[in-house]
Design a protein around this nucleic acid. Structure first.
Length: 626
DNA sequence: GCAAGGTC
């Protein structure tokens, strides 16, 4: 029997080959230089000894487009809402897709079975379907039932062997969901992009080579930055007043906080302040207490959390962090780095991965303590599960100095985060002292950390004991050292940072783990937003074009659906998940949602002069400001 | 010249 195996990328094909063949395989070139064909034999349970060829694609091979009669300029943009879709081999400049396509046709000709080894997520399932579709062109045996689907989520040998021995079928519901997404992104993206570009260009508002694009992910992303920018710009600071009281005890000066906090009425604070000053000996300690407090260990690691942490701890951009993680994954050191899951499956042997870290010079002693002296704890379980991949964890040990600098940081972080997850919470005590002075309440607090636990390995987080409070006694008079009225000002929100933008996109389902960083780059290229240094921080500021686009869309569609808010994309995502669960069909979704987009298009087209006017107006306002 | 999603 001959089996053709196809992975999503060459590095996976190579690694799976290594595992299944026990290291003895023959390598042949394919028509595409970054994809190899690996030949070996393997014993499949129901088939016996088989001749296996393992090859790969490089992401999607087929693309969805419109026919030539719907090219830019050949038809009104609105026609793209009902123009027929054409699926064909993607046209890329080095003919990569065509070469990969040809390799699959050739290698599948004599195969008895096709086995799909793409990533186990929605897009991976769709790529698997593309591969099957291509293989079926010249080999009728490789239909849906002749095609196996290997399910795996990391490259540990035992796991890969298990996947090879227990193949499933392709899940066509996932394939349908992806087809649906592609249809919406294409119809809406191209029609609005052509409309916007035509309008701005005909008024001479953008350069000849420029494109004013609309994308279902680009605009919600832009909208987050614009909303924040306007909130900062429109902010008016308000003054407030508060009381600062310092009590002296055993020679130690202890600041107390006023329970009323910041007050916006100056006269009110002044009245109370006068009362206090009239009765300097009236202050009394009313309560002294100590209660346990803790810092929870972190949740298991997701992609977005990885990107946020790398941005915060190492000042590494989302793109760089993911690139480093990807390399660590293909080298077999960490599990698949694109996951939304923040809970480990119940049956996973978590302790075995702790054991593998015992040998390290920096964190080995901690791992040893976790594993061998009963300090190991089952990690907390978050609420997210993508049903495809577990949280990111260190699969295999490696010495840091074998890795490149970015990978060192990311690997060390993944390990420390994992060990922290498997540790106990940090514990301590919080002491509170309450004081009453002329019926006003004040309090002072102190923290004592007694058990550091996970903090010892998760060195990125600080929790330290504060200065010890002196020995106050309940009922005792308090010796006021000083009392002052302080004036403050409310401060505006900060401009959007990359870390916050990633969070917002993630929460609202804008883009995927792998594309969030790209959407941000795209709207920078389009001159909708720009990066700017503010002190030590880097923030995003929208351009006048970016502000105008959002404001014009909001004005035109104020009573209809919003093209700039995340609502539509989120609604689509929810419906895609229903398709994936088999509750509705792709056609149901098209019938329900496409008319709403089309209506928004018609209205935008009708009021297109407003788009240009808003831009002219924003430009004028901003140049007046500067 | 246009989208978003894979991948390099």
């Amino acid at each position: 029997m001959k089996i053709l195996c196809v992975a999503e990328k060459n590095s996976i094909a190579k690694e799976v080959t290594n595992i299944l063949s026990g290291g003895s395989s023959r390598t042949r070139d394919s028509s595409y230089k970054f994809v190899k064909n690996y030949d070996f034999t393997y014993n499949f349970p129901r088939l016996g000894q088989c001749q296996v060829t393992m090859t790969a694609v490089s992401g999607h091979i087929l693309g969805t487009d419109f026919g030539p009669e719907y090219a830019w300029g050949r038809c009104p943009p609105g026609r793209l809402f009902d123009a027929p879709l054409v699926t064909k081999v993607a046209a890329d400049k080095d003919k990569r897709s065509q070469k990969i396509h040809d390799n699959i046709v050739k290698e599948s000709r004599n195969a008895d079975k096709l086995m799909i080894w793409t990533d186990c997520d929605r897009e991976g399932e769709h790529i698997g379907w593309e591969i099957m579709h291509i293989a079926l062109l010249k080999n009728p045996r490789l239909n849906h039932l002749g095609t196996w689907r290997a399910q795996f989520s990391h490259l540990e040998p035992a796991h890969i062997v298990a996947a090879a021995r227990d193949p499933k079928l392709l899940d066509m519901r996932l394939v349908e969901a992806v087809e649906c997404r592609k249809e919406f992104d294409l119809r809406v993206g191209l029609s609005f992009t052509r409309l916007l570009t035509n309008v701005y260009k005909s008024r001479g508002l953008v350069g000849d080579k420029e494109v004013v694009s609309y994308g279902t992910c680009q605009f919600p992303t832009l909208s987050f930055v614009v909303d924040r920018y306007l909130r900062v710009k429109n902010f008016t600071p308000e003054p407030f007043w508060l009381l600062n009281v310092v009590v002296e005890r055993n020679g130690q000066k202890v600041p107390f906080t006023w329970s009323r906090g910041n007050i916006f009425d100056k006269a009110f604070v002044a009245i109370i302040y006068t009362q206090l000053l009239r009765a300097p000996n009236d202050a009394k300690i009313t309560h002294v207490g100590t209660s346990p407090t803790s810092h929870y260990r972190p949740f298991p690691l997701t992609t977005v959390e990885l990107q946020k942490c790398c941005s915060l701890f190492f000042k590494m951009s989302a793109k760089r962090a993911l690139d480093a993680a990807e390399l660590l994954y293909t080298a077999g050191f960490i599990s698949y780095p694109r996951t939304e899951t923040d809970r480990f499956p119940a049956n996973m042997d978590l302790l075995s991965y702790v054991n593998k870290q015992k040998q390290d010079a920096k964190w080995g002693a901690y791992a040893l303590k976790l594993a061998d002296s009963g300090a190991f704890r089952q990690p907390r379980a978050g609420k997210h599960d993508d049903k495809a991949h577990p949280p990111i964890y260190p699969v295999k040990y490696t010495k840091l100095d074998t890795l490149k600098p970015d990978q060192q940081k990311v690997y060390e972080f993944v390990v420390r985060r994992y060990l922290a997850c498997c540790s106990d919470d940090a514990r301590g005590f919080k002491s509170t002292v309450n004081m009453e002075w002329c019926k006003e309440q004040f309090s002072a607090t102190g923290v004592q950390v007694t058990e550091r636990n996970y903090l010892d390995v998760y060195i990125y987080q600080l929790w330290q004991s504060s200065q010890l409070l002196p020995d106050f006694q309940q009922g005792q008079a308090a010796n006021i050292h000083s009392a002052k009225v302080k004036e403050g000002k409310t401060s505006p929100p900060e401009y959007m940072t990359e870390r916050e933008l990633i969070s917002l996109m993630d929460v609202n389902g804008i883009g995927t783990d792998a594309t969030i960083a790209e959407h941000i780059d795209k709207i920078i290229q389009r001159n909708y937003i720009s990066r700017r240094k503010m002190g030590t921080k880097e923030v995003f500021i929208p351009t006048s074009l970016g502000v105008a686009l959002i404001q014009a869309f909001d004005a035109i569609l104020k009573d209809r659906i919003s093209m700039s808010k995340p609502f539509l994309r989120r609604a689509l995502e929810g419906l895609l998940q229903k398709i994936a669960r088999g509750e509705i069909t792709r056609q149901d979704v098209v019938n329900q949602l496409l008319p709403m987009y089309k209506e928004a298009f018609t209205e935008t087209n009708r009021m297109s002069s407003l788009l240009a006017d808003t831009f002219t107006e924003t430009n004028r306002r901003i140049s007046e400001n500067t």
